[in-house]
Design a protein around this nucleic acid. Structure first.
Lengths: 257, 257
DNA sequence: CAAATAGTGTCTTTTAGACATTATTAA
DNA sequence: TTAATAATGTCTAAAAGACACTATTTG
C-alpha cells in the first residue's frame, strides 16, 4: 500500500516499519459474481488494492486483519498470505510522482519522501460476502468500490499482477481446503455452494458429481429445513460441520474439480 | 537474517532496506540424506539458517540468490519463496542482546541498534547436491555446516519454525512439480531418484509404481548407458528431459505419492 | 552357483467423469 | 397441467496401489 496518503500514517512514520507493506486483496462474492474491492487514490485515474503499513507492535497477520477491518468493518475474516512482492521497479509508475501528488493532496510532498521508497509488500487475500461489507472510504481516496474480477480497471504499480496472483492462489487453495464459510449464509443450499465453486473456478461443474464429492468430505450437514424460494421446488438447506471444516483447513481436503 | 553482524552490512545500512530480511533455507541432498546448511553466529550456542538483507537496487529474488552465492558459491540455484514471517516477538531471544553481542564481537553495540528491530523476513528455500557446495564461513560466524533435517540443533529466534515450514513447503512442492535437477548428477539411475523422493518425503515408495508414474510424466529420458557399480547388476542411467522438465515447472505435474 | 540388486507386469480397488430421469412445487 | 428447478444413481474409463518373479552380474 505504497500509494495511500493515509492520515494515520503521515507524520507518524515512527510507529510503522519501513520498506514493508501489506497488500490485501479483498474478494467479495455475491449472486454468482466474484468481485474485488479496489480503491482509487485521490484524484488519480488508476486504482489499487487495499493495503497499509505494519505497526512495530503487530504481526503481519494482525496488520492485514486491521487493514481489512479499517476498510470493510468486518472482523475475523479469513486471511491468507499468498506471496511476497519485492523489486525496485514495482512502485514506479508514471502516475505516481511528487509533483502530481502534491497537487492532488494540497500537501507539500518531497520527491525524496519515504513514499517513493522501494517497499516489499506481503500479499494477503481475504474472502467475504460482499453485501455484508460497509465500505469505508478514507478522505484521501477518490473512490472505493467493488470490481468484477473479470474486468479490472487500470491499476497502479504492480497491483494487476497482485490481483491475478491472489486469484491463482485462491483457485489453488480451493482444491486443497474447504472454502465457503466466509462467503455463504450460515445455512445454504447445494445449488448455492455449487454456484460459488463455479464462480471462483470460473468453470462449469457437473452438479451431480459436485454434490457427491462435496458430501463425501463430511464438511456439510444436511438439515431438515428447505429454503422457500419464490417459484418451484424448495431446495434443502445445509450448513458446514464446523469441526470437520476446521480439520479440513488443517489437514487438507482433496477437492480437485 | 536479523542476527548476523556481517562486515558488508555494518556501517552500510544505507544501501539496504530496513525492517526486511531474507531467510534462505538451503537444503542439501547426499547419499540418501537430506540436510540443511546452518550457521552459528559468533560465539553463540544457537544456530541460524543462512540469511541476509535486501539491497535497494535488487529484488527479493535477486537478494536471495546473492545470499545463496555468498554462502555456497553456487549460482543459478533453484530458489522458491515459501512464506513470510513477521511478528514483533520473532527476533527476541534470550541469547541475543547488546551486551553479549558486544562482548562476542568486540564491537560496541548499542541496545537501540537496528539489529534489535523487528524484521519481516521473506523465507526462501534452495536445493542443492551438498557435496558441490564450498561452504564460505564469514568471519562473524563461529561455524557453518550441514545438519540432518531430522536432528536440528538449538536454533535462534523462530528459525526452527522457518525450517519446518520450508520442509513442509518442499514436500508440498514435490507433489506438484518435478524436482531433482539440482539434486542429482546429470545422469542418474532409477534407484537414485527413487531414494531422493523417499528421503525428501520421508516415507517408503513402492519402486515399481514409482518408476511407472515417474516415466509417465515424460520428464525422464532413458539412456543406453549403465552405471558400473561395484557388485551385481549395472542399472541404466537416465537424465532429465529439460524441455519437459521446464514445462512441468510451469504447468505442474501431478506426482502424488 | 549363490547372493545381491535391477527391472518389469498383472490384477484389484478406488476414483473420476459422463450422463438422464424423476419428483416437487408454483403459477 | 405445465414449466422450472432439485435431487438422485449407474455405468465406464482411468488411475492408484498391492504384489512376485525373472534377469543379470560379480565373487
Amino acid at each position: 500500500m505504497e500509494h495511500a496518503l493515509q492520515k494515520d500514517f503521515l507524520g507518524q512514520e515512527a510507529q510503522y516499519l519501513h520498506n514493508v507493506s501489506i497488500d490485501n486483496v479483498i474478494f467479495g462474492y455475491h449472486e454468482k459474481e466474484l468481485k474485488v474491492l479496489l480503491q482509487q487514490p485521490f484524484s488519480k485515474n488508476k486504482w489499487t488494492v487495499t493495503g497499509g503499513y505494519i505497526k512495530k507492535t503487530e504481526s503481519i497477520e494482525q496488520a492485514a486483519a486491521r487493514i481489512a477491518v479499517e476498510r470493510t468493518g468486518l472482523r475475523n475474516l479469513f486471511l491468507k498470505q499468498f506471496h511476497c512482492f519485492g523489486n525496485p521497479e514495482r512502485v514506479k509508475d508514471r502516475d505516481f510522482d511528487a509533483k502530481s501528488l502534491s497537487k492532488a493532496t494540497g500537501l507539500n510532498i518531497d520527491p525524496d519522501s519515504w513514499m517513493f521508497d522501494y517497499f516489499v509488500s506481503v500479499g494477503f487475500y481475504t474472502l467475504t460476502e460482499f453485501s455484508r461489507v460497509a465500505i469505508r472510504k478514507s478522505e484521501f481516496e477518490a473512490d472505493c468500490r467493488w470490481w468484477p474480477v473479470g474486468s479490472i480497471p487500470p491499476m497502479l504499480f504492480d497491483h494487476k499482477l497482485i490481483i491475478s496472483e491472489a486469484l491463482e492462489a485462491l483457485r489453488l487453495h480451493i482444491a486443497h481446503y474447504p472454502i465457503g464459510y466466509e462467503l455463504l449464509e450460515e445455512k445454504f443450499t447445494l445449488p448455492e455452494i455449487h454456484s460459488l465453486y463455479e464462480t471462483i473456478l470460473s468453470k462449469k461443474l457437473d452438479h451431480r458429481n459436485f454434490a457427491k464429492k462435496l458430501m463425501a468430505t463430511g464438511i456439510l450437514t444436511k438439515l431438515d429445513e428447505t429454503r422457500k424460494i419464490g417459484a418451484h421446488r424448495s431446495p434443502f438447506l445445509y450448513k458446514f460441520n464446523k469441526a470437520q471444516y476446521e480439520r479440513g483447513l488443517k489437514t487438507g481436503v482433496e477437492l480437485a474439480f
